[in-house]
Design a protein around this nucleic acid. Structure first.
Length: 589
DNA sequence: GTGAAGGGCCAC
DNA sequence: AAACGTGGCCCTTCAC
């Protein structure tokens, strides 16, 4: 079916188009670009649709540099105006291109991609491409064959323009269906939270983070030496158990093959546990030096491959920085995930983190939430003792140790604090006594007794966790403070399946509310950084990093802390929210 | 050759 | 009897 559209190629037409578009409260929105990466290609088209009429702005016709094009000023104002809603699919993509190539923000966004993910509520069978979403919510079949066509062409074909117009137009019928569905699923609030977080993330990806390649290479050189030494020594030790070794010299074993390494260890008489995972091998390391060597080799091998030369290839030549991909709903809990490269798994070791640094004349302002998940749990449970431990403002693990072991805070031993700490962390994930025993070295009985004491101290926490578990199994639904939803699937005839669903369902509201809070904080931060030198450069679940002019760092630190604490306060009412903020030259604690 | 699955391990 | 939640990346193995 042909779609009515107007092709906008000059300033007068642009002005008239925007005037017409402004009469609508909601517009379909899409862009066409010559590449997928805004630093590598050009923005060709911006499409805005009222449903009846669609305007296709050809950015090329307004000059070489879209940012400098005066004729596009009305369009920029319209896009930046949050009072006009723009419906787009995966809006982060369009926002990045518009920000970089037109020089303005896109505000007031409704994202059909994120809406679809929220509605799916963790169902991994559902797909979320525009074609899939259109089919699912409106039964419209979309042909995406022009998506990969040449948007660089001097003159675009009628079929290209038709395709471009249609993608913007289809957004409106999609929006109607999806807005209703969000409302009936109780997802309106979380959707707003997600949509308002899009622009901060789009901007963060454009900002990128500076990685000092020289420092990285220096570190890598050290690791290479260690790797080669460990590999050589491990090879020698393993070969001792292989028969052919004496005949043909040293038999080469693939040290990265868990099958070959396991065989070799068995030949050497090492009693092999169920797997060769580090935590299973660790206890054997003392008696069998070869096991210790294997663990040493694995560690350096991991450093060299996952955190080696490859990450340097992600440095964008145009900016000299790394622009990773952040998936806003990376996990069904609402947490972000990050890839290409994953900046959320850079080793904590200062040798790696110090390579991520502020550029000349700049500082990094780094803030992280203190015990955010435990504070959320305390709030949800309403447990007075648990809340008191936070209200005291003292070291939380010492306070809980003091309460659980019934000693004065100043008399808590290092060992008691350590038990309390590991239990505090484990509680959020639904740890059991046997796992707790495993990680502390306590006997099963002692572990059970310690946990009994813990839950005896925090009766309402125990009650909350039980009730939460019962409720998620009963209703097959879990929700965060913002209303984010997870549907649970389990086999009711399988105890293990029920137990697993229960842990997942109990954990999700806690982990997910933490994600809610971070997303709200990013919106507040984005607004308060406007007009400053501050730029968001990285986030790691409960940590936010901003780069800014050195002279402004103190001010930015206050803004960052305020945004994070205010966001926390919107979802957590009874427990104080605390952040630790510091100013540094490098990514460090 | 390519891709999926599984083991292993980094982060929070 | 069970045995701690979320991700991504690298490697080997194995099927096509």
């Amino acid at each position: 079916m042909e779609i009515q559209f107007q092709y906008v190629t000059d300033a007068d037409a642009a002005e008239r188009a925007v005037e017409e578009l402004r009469r609508e409260g909601t517009l379909g929105f899409d862009t066409e670009t010559t590449e997928l990466d805004p630093y590598k290609g050009r923005l060709r088209l911006v499409q805005l649709s009222t449903g009846r009429n669609t305007y296709v702005f050809d950015v090329f016709k307004f000059g070489e540099d879209g940012r400098a094009a005066q004729g596009l000023e009305p369009l920029r104002e319209l896009l930046a105006d949050a009072s006009v809603q723009k419906v787009a699919h995966n809006a982060k993509f369009d926002q990045k291109w518009v920000r970089h190539h037109l020089g303005c923000e896109t505000n007031g966004v409704f994202d059909t991609y994120l809406a679809s993910v929220l509605i799916a509520a963790g169902d991994s069978d559902r797909r979320h491409s525009l074609a899939d979403v259109a089919k699912y919510f409106t039964d419209i079949e979309l042909d995406k064959s022009e998506q990969i066509s040449d948007w660089n062409a001097g003159e675009l074909s009628p079929s290209q323009l038709q395709y471009a117009a249609r993608d913007a137009q289809v957004m409106l019928s999609l929006h109607e269906q999806m807005a209703d569905r969000l409302a009936s699923d109780g997802l309106t609030e979380v959707a707003k939270l997600e949509f308002e977080c899009l622009m901060p993330i789009a901007q963060m990806e454009l900002n990128g983070i500076f990685l000092d390649a020289e420092r990285w290479r220096e570190q890598l050189a050290k690791v290479r030496v260690a790797q080669s030494k460990a590999a050589d020594e491990l090879q020698d030790m393993l070969s001792a158990g292989v028969a052919q070794a004496s005949l043909f010299g040293r038999a080469e074993i693939n040290l990265d093959s868990q099958a070959q390494v396991t065989d070799a260890l068995i030949n050497l008489g090492v009693p092999m546990p169920n797997s060769t995972r580090a935590w299973e091998l660790q206890p054997l390391a003392e008696k069998y030096p070869v096991v210790g060597k294997l663990l040493e080799y694995r560690a350096v091998q991991k450093s060299m491959t996952s955190f080696g030369e490859n990450i340097l290839e992600y440095i964008e030549p145009k900016t000299g920085r790394i622009h990773a991909d952040f998936r806003q709903i990376g996990a069904p809990t609402g947490r972000f995930s990050c890839s290409n490269p994953n900046l959320q798994q850079i080793p904590h070791d200062a040798a790696y983190r110090r390579c991520f640094r502020a550029t000349e004349g700049k500082k990094l302002v780094i803030a992280d939430y203190s015990q955010i998940e435990l504070r959320i749990l305390a709030d949800f449970s309403g447990d007075e003792n648990f809340i008191k431990a936070f209200e005291s403002g003292q070291d939380f693990h010492s306070m809980t140790a003091s309460q659980v072991f019934n000693v004065k805070p100043e008399d808590v031993t290092a060992e008691q604090r350590s038990f309390a700490k590991r239990l505090n962390f484990g509680i959020v994930y639904g740890v059991g006594a046997s796992r707790f025993a495993m990680m502390t070295g306590l006997s099963q009985t002692d572990a059970e007794n310690t946990m009994r004491k813990y839950f005896g101290t925090y009766r309402n926490l125990d009650g909350y966790l039980r009730e939460s578990g019962r409720s998620v199994i009963d209703s097959r639904v879990a929700r965060t403070a913002s209303g984010r939803m997870l549907r649970l699937r389990y086999d009711e005839n399988d105890r293990a399946s029920i137990a697993s669903a229960k842990r997942y369902g109990v954990n999700m509201p806690i982990q997910g509310t933490s994600a809610d809070i971070l997303k709200r904080a990013l919106r507040l931060l984005h607004d308060s950084l406007a007009g400053t030198s501050g730029h968001l450069v990285n986030i790691v679940h409960d940590e936010v990093m901003v780069e800014c002019d050195s002279a402004e760092a103190d001010d930015i630190a206050v803004k960052l802390e305020n945004a994070m604490v205010a966001a926390g306060g919107e979802f957590v009412k009874r427990v104080p929210i605390k952040t630790d903020v510091h100013i540094a030259d490098e990514w460090s604690k």
